[in-house]
Amino acid sequence: MTEQAMPLYEVFIRPKAGLSHKHVGSLHAPDDTMALQMARDVYTRRGEGVSIWVVPSKLIAASDPADKDMLFEPTVSKVYRHPTFYDVPDEVGHM
């Protein structure tokens, strides 16, 4: 194989107006324009979206799964960050 490898892109699709873009998968393409066209063909054949983002995968910085506990564990114990932590007397009604 002497062929040059095609760059990898991550694909994000907005399913409908008002919702945020969501990661749906990846693809290989020579440039942004073709990545968008291919994302349309590969990921939106049944009206799955109204807008597409493509991002070269190498530009994404990701957290290390090994750091999961260090990063996210501290918030698990902070129950006071949720509204259900607080008592509101029934007489006050809906708040």
């Binding site: 062929e3 040059q4 095609m6 020579p30 440039d31 073709m34």
Partner: peptide
């Protein structure tokens, strides 16, 4: 086609 697309990019 693949070569041309990469060269164009």
């Amino acid at each position: 086609v693949r070569e041309a697309a990469l060269a164009h990019a």
